[in-house]
Design a binder for these strands. Structure first.
Length: 575
DNA sequence: TAATGCGCACACT
DNA sequence: AGTGTGCGCATTA
């Protein structure tokens, strides 16, 4: 896995570039990361590639040039038009993709990243799922489809690319950019574009041939992010024994990061470094510095972002003010509603209202002019951080559970959640008992299936089930049948379950699990919220539905298919 | 001089 | 038609 700080830096940079309507290309990303964080462009490029492999960042071609997208923010409205089976190695499909996008050339040294396709398709699935949230989901992972007419092409990771991709980084022969841009892209580019394309240099050649078989993808991913090998993951997370508290989790990341960054101003415990704004674990309010952060302001307070030196005082303050504004406006709305002044309930809060309120408060603040864009960026950031919430109608509200814009308290939100959750541990058992008589067996089978499949894909060598790779075409039922036929057998499943006790999962394990489960985008939310196995087991329905800032459809599926089942299984074993 | 802001035309669904 | 994207230029630091 790429270092979390790089992940945040890069995602932040992509978001920033997008917010100012600049193309998030390699050159700009490298430049901005270097400028803001002093990171070596080569390293940035490496980390970016890792992120592409992790599906955290999507590499796309848009209007004839390469762009990078924050996968978590990509909203594809399209509907897949054909399905495919990725266990074809993705090859045939990618071939089709190549044909469709023959105008775009790669430098040929890359395996077409199937994960990219999967990423998008999973998102499509999620879109679909929203329309049917009440459906008890088919436990089978949906077969991803491929939009055969994708014009915004998802690009492969040029894993073997190495240096030489970034003209802006002082390197020549931008293979990645040139591969698409230099091609001229089927002549659709305007004259002005052509000029730019030419400037970018052109690598000819054919689009990369070797497509990554899915198996390969699943084999490598855990290793890449460190979650694949439990021992390694333990190391990453500090891995102290006993009850792993949020604080511990937080300290592992915060301290670890702080130690390797220049922002050593951050003092105190990790928990005190985390924002106390969500009921969910947020020690990782190692949030990216705001795109608005000026470099000279970065080494400021330890507020919300320990290693970015408080995200810069400016954006941090604006964020606080933003939250305060939303709260205030919400209170005003409530008051109005109570007085009957507002017909139809609360007035929706949008960017316009918030901006108006902020502006009316002080016009020009200490941090300068409050532009719409600026507020928007901070608003988005706060939504991403969970300190604000966007309703499904697009309005801005406070999170369901009290969000505190106040500075971090000694006991951070993570601790509060954990404490609450620990107190409610019996709830899990209650849930388990409540459902035991209904769908427990089916859920258990599904879980068993998904775990031999999931772990089988990650540790297939270890567990010796190489024939049991996770493929979207597999189904729990199929696998269940195989199980009944004795492929795995009760003993195997039992022992596997024992060794796969979710309570021991690291955050990366959780992320890996949900990524493999077909929820890569939502998996990021688990990473953002630093949900490890223990936390997962203690999450309540509402936490999943509202606390992760993920869409309702996927959230329901995640809860019903996975969280609940894992909890049920776990607490049953407790019994 | 580089970074940022943003109108507007284009790409895409 | 609606929305996302990013070029190109103006402005700001």
């Amino acid at each position: 896995m790429s270092e979390s700080k790089y992940r945040d830096w890069i995602l932040e940079t992509i978001d920033s570039l997008r917010s100012r309507k600049a193309r998030p290309d390699l050159e700009r990303i490298c430049r901005m990361v270097r400028r803001r964080h002093g990171s070596d462009p080569d390293r940035t490029r490496e980390e970016l590639e890792k992120l592409i492999q992790e599906q955290t960042v999507l590499k796309v071609s848009y209007k004839g040039s390469i762009s990078y997208r924050n996968a978590a923010k990509v909203q594809r409205k399209s509907r897949k038009k054909s399905d495919f089976t990725p266990d074809n190695g993705g090859g045939s499909e990618v071939e089709g993709e190549k044909a469709i996008h023959s105008s775009l050339n790669n430098n040929g040294d890359s395996a077409h990243s199937f994960t990219d396709l999967e990423e998008v398709e999973s998102r499509d699935r999620e879109e679909d799922s929203v329309s049917e949230p009440s459906e008890y989901p088919d436990p089978r992972p949906e077969t991803p489809g491929l939009t055969s007419e994708k014009k915004q092409k998802l690009f492969p990771l040029n894993s073997g690319n190495g240096p030489g991709c970034c003209p802006g980084c002082g390197e020549t022969g931008c293979a990645e950019t040139g591969c698409a841009a230099g091609r001229g892209c089927s002549g659709k580019a305007s004259a002005s574009k052509d000029k730019r394309l030419g400037e970018r240099g052109g690598g000819g050649g054919q689009e990369g041939g070797g497509s990554s078989p899915l198996a390969g993808n699943h084999e490598t991913k855990p290793g890449q992010d460190g979650s694949g090998a439990p021992s390694k993951a333990k190391g990453v997370c500090g891995g102290a024994g006993g009850v792993e508290t949020a604080g511990q989790e937080g300290s592992s990341s915060c301290v670890g990061v702080a130690a390797e960054t220049e922002h050593k101003i951050c003092q105190g415990s990790a928990s005190s470094c985390s924002s106390s704004n969500s009921h969910l674990m947020r020690p990782k309010q190692l949030q990216p510095a705001s795109p608005l952060v000026k470099p000279k302001l970065r080494a400021g307070r330890c507020e919300g972002n320990p290693w970015v030196g408080g995200s810069g005082q400016t954006s941090s303050d604006l964020g606080e003010r933003l939250i305060a504004s939303v709260r205030r406006l919400a209170e005003q709305n409530r008051a109005s509603a109570l007085r009957g002044e507002t017909r139809g309930g609360h007035k929706p809060l949008g960017l316009k209202e918030i901006l108006g309120y902020l502006t009316s408060q002080d016009g020009l603040s200490s941090e300068g002019k409050l532009t719409r864009n600026r507020v928007k960026v901070v608003l988005e950031r706060e939504v991403a951080r969970g300190r604000l919430r966007r309703t499904r109608c697009g309005n801005i509200t406070l999170p369901v559970r009290g969000v505190e814009a106040a500075p971090a308290k000694p006991t951070g939100p993570a601790n509060r959640l954990l404490k609450s959750a620990l107190q409610d541990k019996h709830i899990g058992k209650k849930i388990h008992r409540t459902h035991r008589s209904t769908s427990r067996e089916g859920d258990q089978n599904m879980l068993s299936w998904f775990l031999c499949v999931w772990r089988g894909s990650a540790y297939k060598t270890e567990v010796g089930v190489s024939s049991c790779l996770l493929t979207p075409t597999a189904s729990p039922r199929d696998s269940g049948l195989a199980e009944e036929r004795g492929m795995n057998g009760g003993v195997f499943v039992k022992s596997e379950l024992g060794s796969l006790n979710p309570v021991n999962w690291t955050v990366s394990d959780v992320v890996s699990y949900f990524t493999s489960a077909g929820f890569p985008e939502q998996a990021l939310a688990f990473r953002t919220q630093e949900i490890d196995g223990k936390s997962l087991l203690l999450m309540q329905r509402n936490d999943v539905l509202t606390g992760l800032s993920i869409r309702l459809g996927p959230a329901l599926k995640i809860y019903e298919r996975h969280v609940k089942v894992l909890q049920r299984t776990h607490f049953e074993e407790d019994d």
